[in-house]
Amino acid sequence: MSTHGKPQGLEHELWVPAEDDYHGHPNYLKVYIYLLILFAITVFASLIPNPMIVFIVVFSISIIKASMVILNFMHLKWEPNIIWYMLLLALIALAFLFLGLYPDTVPIERFFVPNG
């Protein structure tokens, strides 16, 4: 780094302060307790005998938990839109992947030539 010749003049417009913490701080303890409550619900919901219901309940709670972590602990609430767009594109990509793979995976029956 020391060999870097820096040009004269203003570097670039100060887009953002590099180190300043300009986003808000939620009450982390409160979020943490909510997360623990949801976690407890997840564990107890898994005792329901019907796996389909378990899947729906548990997976939707997972989504809620994940979004709580992303929004509060990772401060996505205060981040500029471009981060949202990027995460949205990731979700879109995954949704397409799921939809594209579904008809070629789930309904297909395995087949092997007998006495092959």
Binding site: L14, W15, V16, A18, E19, Y22, H23, P80, M86
Partner: peptide, 21 residues
């Protein structure tokens, strides 16, 4: 001047955090 909290444009974020996201 973009340092004020309320006026964060849609793409303004410190570079370390941007890269991490």
């Amino acid at each position: 001047n973009t340092t004020s909290l309320s006026k964060i444009a849609w793409n303004r974020i410190p570079q370390a955090r941007f890269a991490m996201w």
